[in-house]
Design a protein around this nucleic acid. Structure first.
Lengths: 218, 218
DNA sequence: CCCCTTATCCAGTAATCTTTGGAATAACGT
DNA sequence: ACGTTATTCCAAAGATTACTGGATAAGGGG
């Protein structure tokens, strides 16, 4: 049978057609991860994750790298990230269901927030070195890549470490991306501790997909 | 059951996960079409096309408009076009299979062609009014939307009407998009008739997705 | 009103995808 | 070599999706 260009294209489409695979892509968008780590973070069976990763690999959306007994997976390139971003944008603007799912997930439909910083503003603030930037994602994701100069303060530790921030001029929290609640929560928690903080409009995913520099390690 | 944001996102992904649906999207990217017209163009059963259109509609990627007994479908917006374009780009750059499928489909792996015009160049030529632009797609697609000022010369009529073009300074042919062979063929046929022609690098799909003006009717 | 056209709905069958546990593999340390 | 850890491969059950033909609905024209 003569496989057409549409058949091949559909392979890429199919890869994006499963909620579980999307969740994996979302995690990988934060940076490299091992199979086991993905399974734990997404609460899926190990073999299930492996199977999905094979699908993603076959459609050339992810790549793997062996390090000892562990295998690290990562997105195949920034264009994949851009595609994922484009898909989320379309879903958000076109689908009322997605809008509702997001609102119920993210809590407040915005409006009463202290302050939101756009990516462009943050870039400016980073250059002048005036802001304290908090990465509130799990430490593992911070290590896999973060905004240069950011400080890792995982959401779980925010309250305990709020005192570190009293007196800081301009505190800005960020997390995974526009679909992620952690920065919202962090700002709310900090506010309860008397620390005024703003949050980045989107997050690491969009930072990467727009080609901004990423710092790895630590 | 609590449907997550990923479930909703996957609805959009799934829509792009079937070769048949992609073919329909590809046709709709050329402009509005009725169900029957889509079925004929894509060589699918009428009920099959209808079913696929329902899936696309449920994921808010297409919209429909009734006119008498006919129902016209079109893409829901330019962002859908952009997403489709992004997907094709990723597939082309990432997947060797797609590259091979395209090469075997498009014939020559390029290199020996007389001339290729980029979208930017064409825009310049249109302003100065120097070029004769040929739309070699089926007349129906020309009517559903074409590059302003283009002349409709369907591929099937190219040889018969080649004489119209002898003496023309700069002839440029275009078709559906980067995955379409018609402009390649047209240039080859014209060359055989002694008319030197160039072709647009991509086609109508990319013209639309980059927000260029579109002329409808005739 | 009836008939014709166009398209959707429905139900059954076929095909494909997902998940899961257990076996196989690959690298590592001893 | 041998056991240990991390992951993939395999096969079977379960779930979803696709295709088909016949029935149904919605408009238009005589």
């Amino acid at each position: 049978m003569n496989t057409t260009a549409f058949d091949e294209l559909a392979v890429v489409g199919k890869a994006f057609g499963s909620p579980k695979r999307l969740e994996l892509i979302d995690l990988l968008a934060q940076g490299e991860r091992t199979v086991e780590s993905l399974a734990k973070a997404a609460d899926m069976g190990l073999t299930t994750v492996s199977a999905h990763l094979q699908v993603l690999k076959l459609s050339n959306l992810v790549q793997s790298r062996r390090e000892g007994t562990k295998i690290h997976y990562s997105l195949a390139g920034d264009d994949v990230l851009e595609l994922y971003d484009a898909m989320r944008t379309v879903a958000r603007t076109r689908s009322p269901q997605v809008q509702r799912a997001l609102e119920s997930h993210l809590g407040v439909p915005s409006g009463d927030e202290v302050g939101i910083v756009t990516r462009e503003e943050l870039i400016g603030l980073l250059e002048s070195g005036e802001a304290v930037v908090l990465d509130v994602r799990p430490a593992e994701e911070f290590a896999a890549g973060h905004i240069p100069g950011a400080r890792s303060v995982p959401l779980a530790e925010v309250i305990a470490r709020a005192s570190e921030l009293t007196g800081s001029e301009d505190v800005i929290a960020y997390c995974r991306g526009a679909f992620c609640v952690m920065a919202h929560d962090a700002v709310r928690l900090l506010s309860g501790e008397g620390v005024q903080a703003r949050r980045l409009e989107d997050g690491m995913l969009e930072w990467r997909s727009h080609g901004q520099p990423v710092e790895v390690g630590r």
